[in-house]
Design a binder for these strands. Structure first.
Lengths: 349, 349
DNA sequence: CTGAAAGCGCTTACAG
DNA sequence: CTGAAAGCGCTTACAG
């Protein structure tokens, strides 16, 4: 009825068939302890195991060793197209290392996040890959202090006690600003992301420093900060910028969702993109190249981000006293139809 | 160093603190057996447990009971925007039922699929939600015969030995055909999906019967079958249709990806959508409403699909001899800018 | 190099 | 209603 049939052959039976003690059979079958056993014995045990179709009982093993070879992956929202490629990268790497992926979405709800972490620990995951970090994240810091293996993905905590894999936002933003400056834009605005997240802050700071490096000033009326990375917030902020009197000829949005909101705001204001205002995003979401106009944006290697995070975690699991590692992957600017040479300043409202 | 600190308090200690035998403590703490214990004793045990911060060891429990309260979710490709909402629906429902989600992508590779199923069984998942079914799927049928609880999601196996949750494709297609016929289209073409999948077949058959019901003939030169649900295949098939001499004024693509390919083919042929040719998709992928033109398509309640599949599985787990259930969720046509009244027949090539 | 034994932390017949 | 005991299937010190 259930799949107990599969489980019917146990280590004890393999041992009997091979004429050895179960302990010996265990050692022979386990990679790590195999060298303790005489080669001929190993061979005998392995033969018996495969003859009987022996499959070790993971539950028993996990119970005994307190290791589950599973890792918890905590993301904000799988519906955000950023995350699926990361999850795939994680899964691919984890799988080849013999780990299994427990996935959970926080949906940005504190209560849900707490539940998820508690559940993952109850399930004895060997480690956690967390893509929901806030810059200040006491909950996460506490986890780390409890000695749970955690790798941060995409976003980062201010407290530098985590290994992490994220994109080099500074480099990405620099490429954006250089591109816009190169097109002759004088009045470049920024729709910043939430400053409570490392990505929002890093891109904002990158904007300030890149502007300065390019000899431009980032005027206060040309910056608006969104409270979330959503289309609605992008529209709201872009509207603020357009009505501020700052007369931007280009808007750099801290991610593609916000950029989509910029499109909406421009449309509502009767402005054309890129003729009147250029728009740049960040992330290179799927299908963003099929919009009208196709969005100029910064491509982040999301799959790689996930794969590297998984690797870091696995390394850390195998070598618990490994020093922390902070990986920054290189993004690249993808120029499409939403940016064009600056024309004249535009004033609205 | 590890989170062993959390595990330090064991059932035995709770029992001692409450002055009862561990067996009694177990019964008192377990929902199902609590009624066997005198209320005052239950109270004492519960108090002791919470005073000591007792957390049952899942590993021990799973080992003993052979249940893990985990379910494997097998999807073709998380990067396909269809699946994230389904996965979220699954996770939400599973979580409230106390189950955890093991996620894996087959990437449509047979080898990978086999590995995944083997792994999931090794991990003793309580059941499986499978969105990768082929119409003929001996592997899956075998699983079911082994008595593993399986619920099919989105796609279905010809062999009717599974519970499943999918969309009522026939109803969706009917709405599409009626819409196009209502717009005066005489020559309606179909880019069919892979006929090895139930979705591809059902939508094709739905097309045939709806056309017939509407008094139209589905001419052979107005149907082309894709070998995969991809943009490239959509473009290839649409090109075939446009060059076949059938002169379609509307193309119904079996999903949005294929419809995207139709857009490309029209563009390459110098035809405008919807002025020259109307296009309809299926699924209502995220952001498909932001394309140029916004795609008319059939909305499928993907989140609900996932949630219902999870529910079916959980029900089946709790009530193993429950009869199979086949759920068909109702889709709805979303009319956007890619469809317009028919003008004249168009001939290309 | 191998055997004998203990034990991981629970659950669950079985007695009483 | 509760206790005493067995046992799930492994791994791993400990002897020899």
């Amino acid at each position: 009825m259930t799949h107990d049939a599969r489980d019917v052959v146990t280590l004890r039976e393999v041992a009997r068939a091979a004429g050895v003690h179960p302990g010996t059979a265990s050692r022979a079958l386990n990679e790590a302890t195999r060298s303790l056993v005489r080669p001929e014995t190993v061979e005998r045990v392995v033969a018996a195991a495969s003859a009987l179709g022996y499959r070790p009982n993971y539950l028993a093993r996990s119970f005994k060793t307190r290791q589950t070879r599973s890792v918890g992956v905590v993301i904000p929202d799988i519906n955000n197209p950023l995350f699926p490629p990361m999850v795939l990268g994680i899964e691919d790497r984890l799988t080849t290392e013999g780990y299994v992926t427990l996935l959970a979405n926080t949906q940005n709800e504190a209560q849900r996040r707490e539940r998820i972490f508690a559940e993952m620990l109850e399930r004895h995951v060997d480690g956690l890959i967390v893509a929901t970090a806030q810059r200040e994240d006491p909950e996460l810091v506490e986890l780390a202090q409890d000695g749970i293996a955690v790798v941060l993905l995409n976003r980062v905590v201010e407290d530098r006690s985590f290994s992490s894999v994220s994109a080099d936002d500074g480099a990405g933003v620099r490429a954006v600003v250089d591109h816009l400056v190169g097109l002759g834009h004088e009045r470049i605005a920024h729709v910043a992301g939430p400053q409570s997240m490392s990505t929002g802050l890093a891109r904002y700071q990158g904007f300030l420093s890149s502007m300065q490096a390019a000899g431009r000033r980032a005027e206060p009326e040309l910056v608006a900060a969104a409270t979330s990375f959503t289309i609605n917030e992008g529209e709201r902020c872009a509207t603020v910028l357009l009505e501020s009197g700052g007369a931007p000829t280009a808007i750099f949005a801290a991610n593609d969702m916000l950029a989509l909101g910029c499109y909406s705001a421009l449309e509502r204001a009767g402005l054309r993109c890129p003729e009147d205002v250029s728009v740049v995003g960040f992330n290179d979401m799927p299908f963003i190249d099929r919009l009208n106009p196709p969005l100029t944006t910064v491509r982040i290697p999301h799959y790689e981000l996930g794969a590297q995070a998984a690797q870091l975690l696995v390394d850390q699991l195998h070598q618990p006293h490994e020093p922390l590692r902070v990986l920054l992957l290189v993004p690249s600017l993808v120029v499409r139809g939403s940016t064009a040479p600056a024309r004249a300043a535009v004033r609205v409202g």
